[in-house]
Amino acid sequence: MSVMEGRTTSALLYLDGVHVSFDGFHAINNLSLTLEPGEMRAIIGPNGAGKTTMMDIITGKTKPDEGTVLFDGMTDLTRLDETRIAELGIGRKFQKPTVFESQTIEDNLLLALNVDHSVKGTLFWRGSRDEAERIDRVLETIRLTDARYRLAGSLSHGQKQWLEIGMLLAQDPKLLLVDEPVAGMTDVETHQTAELLKEINKEKTVMVVEHDMTFVRELGVKVTCLHEGTVLAEGTIDQVSSNERVIEVYLGR
């Protein structure tokens, strides 16, 4: 049973006591974290801290060995597969930008739209005005209107990052998991991305993983620092960056 009796938490995302090990290597150790509806959270942590693995767990790619992962207080995500979790309204941008390279920008967004995803639905699909307008809006937001008929594979690294964020927008999920969105971007693009995420956060709950501290500071949201698969510190960026243990893991590497 994936739906529990009644709500147990007000959080949109609730992780408690999660453990994952790969061949005896403990990638996630007793990880507990909650995200309130409408919140934006920045996740930082050194390489190998388990940030991406945490997203893998939330989106059903990796099954935890132990622990609770609840979405919307009711749904046990550990029992569902990737497709089901995406249908529930959790969207994800990957660390390495993953777009459909041999298809146009427009088609990438069309594929991402949260419309009927069944075999029958796509076989007999005929575009609607509403869908076309949604795609136009997303294209404008991610500033790729002029490139709409270009193949996604021809985009620069930074543009691919934006296209993938655009796909998230088209998907229109309740919770967005964004893994390293500004890697490979110029300062201006980084700033624009921060603005875009803040805009998105007006309607949606967002979790952002990022190493770029200027960017995290610009977001101005609560920060969680992970280390060796567990939460090391949580608070404002100033609190976290002045935390002794955090300084230790970042400098002691």
């Binding site: 969207g91 298809q103 594929l111 991402a112 796509t122 007999f124």
Partner: peptide, 26 residues
């Protein structure tokens, strides 16, 4: 058809397609 676009998406990035909510096995 749009199904054809989904097929190409599966060919090029299968797991990405799942994360968009497509049931790849179907």
């Amino acid at each position: 058809s749009k199904l054809g676009k989904v097929l190409i998406a599966i060919r090029d990035a299968e797991s990405r397609t799942r994360f968009l909510g497509y049931r790849v096995e179907s």
